[in-house]
Design a protein around this nucleic acid. Structure first.
Lengths: 189, 189
DNA sequence: CGGAACCTACCGATCTACAGGTAGGTAGAG
DNA sequence: CTCTACCTACCTGTAGATCGGTAGGTTCCG
């Protein structure tokens, strides 16, 4: 099955195109035709690779999961601002997931479970990260469990403000401000 | 024009219904038929009151604007946690605007301008509020301008986490934690 | 080597559904 | 008689999905 390689590449292209289209239109607003066009296929051709729109979405989410599932052991607190800066250079990615997050709170949305699980684990690893570094109390006095949702909330909330007004909002600075408030100083390298 | 009164009431009902439907499906996912059904009309009956779907959306946003545009002079910092608590009791409203916010970052979305303006003014009044109370430096050392986006971000970010997992996230506590970090103590009544 | 059997990668035509919007009407209040 | 408040009927567009191809391999057998 030599064709398998090519198939994989093609699927990859399609997933990347889908990411773009979802960034521009959200999931509900994205059409298979638009995704197909971007990779030079017809809608039906695309459905050869993914049997349904939802299957394509799942593939997109899986890809993301693989991408940013870094083993906890490799994470370090002082890398967080770097992550924010890194994201700021890829508005497409942020926009895709901000759009999907917004949609995910609506009924029966296929991404709802994904985000619910995702946030649960993200809060957990964040709390774990903080605990490893500081123990039961951060310098600010908060427990890791109570700081974690704040850190996550700030990242998400800033993204929306930044997407709407990139020139008015300095994500990077604001995020480092929060870390400073928590007493979690980023020793920048 | 006595009928004007009834018309106004009807419009109000429709707007409330639209708010619900948007909460459940987002704007793109919401259909005029679903809104109409909720108030016992046909889709065309609804179009008698609002000439288009977008006109209805605008009405929803206007309503919201009127609702929570409180003169700055009446705002007080220690009311913020109350606002958060109050919102927590009305998941529908939060969900409507979280869904719309998510969609608003997509291309050509009719709510984009609304949210862009809204965040600009919200950040401004927040900064103003903090300045009135604390001057150029909050107890934590941050300037009002740098604290404002953080406060706003936390409110929004928490809402998403809370909508996805109401039992795992204590919006109210987390928000007060942030205020405490800023050195903005809420003197609760 | 020749060829039947089968697979991959598509495309065209078409079905179904539903959504937004229009046109034109009717019923009741004043 | 007119205005408001609707409704029925309908048009148009679009989106996801299915069906049935076709063109180009690959496999395996005799």
């Amino acid at each position: 099955m030599v064709a398998g390689v090519r198939t994989g590449e093609r699927r990859g292209e399609i997933i990347r195109a889908a990411l773009e289209v979802i960034a521009e239109r959200g999931y509900r607003g994205a059409t298979l035709g638009a995704v197909a066009e971007r990779v030079g296929l017809t809608q039906q051709g695309l459905l050869h690779y993914f049997p349904s729109k939802e299957a394509l979405l799942v593939a997109v989410l899986d890809e993301r999961d693989r991408w940013d599932t870094v083993p906890d052991s490799q994470w370090r607190l002082d890398l967080l601002p770097t992550l924010v800066d890194y994201n700021a250079m890829r508005p497409g990615i942020i926009q895709t997931f901000s759009a999907l997050l917004g949609e995910s709170v609506t009924e029966d949305h296929p991404t709802r479970d994904f985000f619910t699980r995702r946030y649960a684990t993200v809060r957990d690893s964040m709390a774990g990260l903080l605990r490893v570094e500081y123990g039961e109390r951060l310098p600010s006095g908060l427990t890791p469990e109570r700081a974690a949702p704040l850190v996550v909330a700030v990242m998400d909330g800033l993204q929306y403000q930044w997407l709407l007004a990139p020139n008015d909002v300095d994500m990077s600075q604001a995020f480092r401000d929060l870390l400073a408030l928590l007493g979690v100083e980023a020793r920048h390298g």
